[in-house]
Structure formats: C-alpha cells, structure tokens
Design a protein around this nucleic acid. Structure first.
Lengths: 191, 191
DNA sequence: TGTACATCAGTGAACGCGCGTTCACTGATGTAC
DNA sequence: TGTACATCAGTGAACGCGCGTTCACTGATGTAC
C-alpha cells in the first residue's frame, strides 16, 4: 500500500516537474525531493530513471486518451464532428503538456518501452483514433488509410505548433482551424 | 582563420556525436575531445552550450535544405513530381539524421534561436517548401493553404516514423508511399 | 631590417555542482508459534 | 495473549562521475615604430 502510494506520487511529481521545468530537470532526486522523501527512496520502486520515465509516459498516455475521448464525446455526434473533437483533444493535450507530449513520442532510448502499463495506455490512445476513423473509407485504392492521413496531419500540426512554426486555432480567425484542415482532406463515408 | 576552423570543426564533431550517440552525449567537453583539443578551448568560440547548439542546428538546416533541394531537382519535373521529391527529401533527412532532426524542431529552451545563421538556414528550408507548393491553390476558400497541409502531413509522418509508430516507404509495397499520401490530398493546380 | 609589444587561441589544473548508486541502518508491520 | 522473528520501505552518509566554468599560463601571429 505504502509502496503503491509512493510509486504513484513519484510519477505525479515527475509529471509536475516536466510541466514546470522541462525534461532536463526530470531526475530521480528531483522527484524524490518534490514528494518529500530521501533521494534513495525511489530505488525501491523503479529500476533507475528509465523505469520512472516509463511510468510517467504511461500516465501521460492515459491522460492523453482521456482528453481525446472527452473532446470527442462532447462534440457534435456526427462522423466529422467526432473526428474534429478527437483531433482538437489531440492538439489541446499537446498544447497544455508540451514537454510530456514530446517525451511520449520520443524514443530517446532512455525509456523502457516494454513496460506493460505503457503499452496498454499507448494502445488505448491509438484505438480511440482508429475507432473514430472507422466510418471513413480511403478515397481511392491507392490512397492511404484515413487514420494514417489524419494521424500524420494532426501530429504534424501539434509538433509544428509546439515548436512555434505554425499557429492553429480552435475558433475562427485568420489562421486555419482543425476543422478547416480536416475538411481539406478527402474523407469518404462508408455507403 | 584558426578560429573559424576550430569553430566549424567543433560543429562537425557535434553533428557526429549527435548521430552516433544522441543528444544526451552532446556536451562541450565531448566535442572538444573529438576534435582533439582541450575542453576549455570551445569557450573561445561559443557562448556555452546554447551557442554550440545554435551552430549545430544552423548547419543541420543547411544540410536539410540541401537534401530536399537535391531530391526535388532530381525528380520528374512536374508540380506533383517536384513536390513528391521534396517530401521524399524531407523524410529521408529525418530518417538518416533522427537525433539532429529532433533537435532542430525542438525548442527545448537551451538553444539560441536569435542566431542569424540559424534563422537564415531555417528560412531557406521553409522557402523551398513554399516555392514547391506555389503551383497549387487551396481546394476551397475554407481549406487550408497547400503548404500547411503538406508540411503538417510530411512532418507528422517523419516524426511518427522516427518513433517507430508507422512505416512509410519510398518504393511500392504494403505500406503507403509518400506519393500515395500526397495524391490522397486534394491539391488543385492554378488554372 | 630589426626590435618591442599587443593580441588572442589554446592549455592544463582546479573548482563546485548535481547526478545515480551503494550500503549499513532504523523502525514499522505482519506472521509464526 | 504475548513473544520472537522476518520483511521491507525509507534514511542519511558517502562514493565516483562527468559536467560547465574559471584562471593563470604559453606561445604563435601580427603590428607599430
């Protein structure tokens, strides 16, 4: 019990440090200090920094999937409405948690990608995208699957937005909205 | 003269270290050691690590633009051929220099983004994309500019490919090619 | 042509720093008898 | 009910490590006169 609590408290501390100070500040000692525990304590719960990172990323994917699901389900319940909602959630999460988002999609080799919690959370996020794209067919036999197009588009937008190179809004204005971009794609419903 | 030479040799060493061992191994001391110079020498040429990183990233953008220009100019000289070539260059560079590519598009705060060489090289890469998209018009008034669509798509593909989440090929096979993906987009030529 | 001097890239020793890791320990908890 | 013992999460001191930075120095180069 105490073990589970400290473990999850260290992960939460890691998420906060990532949010406030970025990846460079994310160390075992910093997490222990934030929780208020000696710096040797995390060794009882994680196999070094890669283990802690895996735990943090798993938690990150869970929050990511929650955000997408929430925005999808509170949007207009049509295929395009749900897809726009999901993508807005994707963009929103990457905007609100830039350092975490970057870490989640960076296999810098320092992360234990076999961690079962990590795989479960990551799969759940992917399946949300997959489900929300199922109403759509590829436009032609040669064209790519809808989910590849959509995923690449929204992921590229999120990454470029994060690095300050483009601006994407949710409300209407001079810059394109997610909805404009998705409507630019050739999406064809099942007949 | 000696100053310029050591400066550029340190940048080249940084690029090699990035390629071989990743971002975590990229330090002032490591660059100095690779060049064969004392670890205090770089201080005469760079204002700490951020200055060296700016130099490395500027060089990276130059190589990036070279790669895209080369692939664009050796492709079939039609609008779609040139655009496919450029995007193949984009993907090829990100595949061949994953750590550098990640660093180039990550404003982790540790980089001096006001560096003039950095701005010049970055602008040249962007202008290549812009030029190659000029034959195309948006499909409708609401839809996004072609270059935003293309950039987001190819950047998303590059990033997701790098993190091992999707596979994109240049030759034909079971997975979509860049050409398939670009042909999936609604691109309309000027009349 | 020669002398004196200024400049400055690179040296090598030393510094403090935060990191992950180790290790003997303490003290609470739970269990066997 | 009580005693003895095993377990184990967390402690705190100590370790070696590589990092960026500082600083007095050396020695080559270029310039003024």
């Amino acid at each position: 019990m105490t073990q589970d609590t400290l473990r999850s408290r260290l992960i939460m501390a890691g998420l906060e440090i990532l949010q406030e100070k970025g990846l460079a500040a994310l160390t075992l000692r910093a997490c222990a200090a934030r929780v208020g525990v000696s710096h040797a304590a995390p060794a009882h719960h994680f196999s070094g920094l890669p283990g802690l990172l895996a735990g943090i990323i798993a938690k990150g994917f869970t929050q990511f999937a929650d955000t997408m699901e929430e925005d999808r389900n509170s949007a207009e319940q049509t295929p395009i409405g749900r897809l726009c909602g999901l993508c807005n959630g994707y963009m929103r999460f990457s905007r609100e948690h830039p350092a975490l988002f970057t870490l989640m999609f960076n296999t810098s080799g320092e992360v234990d990608t076999d961690d079962p919690a990590f795989c479960r959370a990551s799969d759940r996020a992917y399946n949300l995208l997959h489900e929300t794209c199922t109403p759509y067919l590829p436009v032609s036999p040669q064209s790519a699957a809808t989910e590849v197009l959509v995923w690449a588009l929204v992921h590229g937008l999120a990454t470029l937005q994060h690095s300050g190179r483009i601006v994407v809004t949710e409300s209407e204005g001079e810059t394109p909205t997610i909805e404009d971009l998705l409507r630019s794609l050739p999406l064809k419903l099942h007949t």
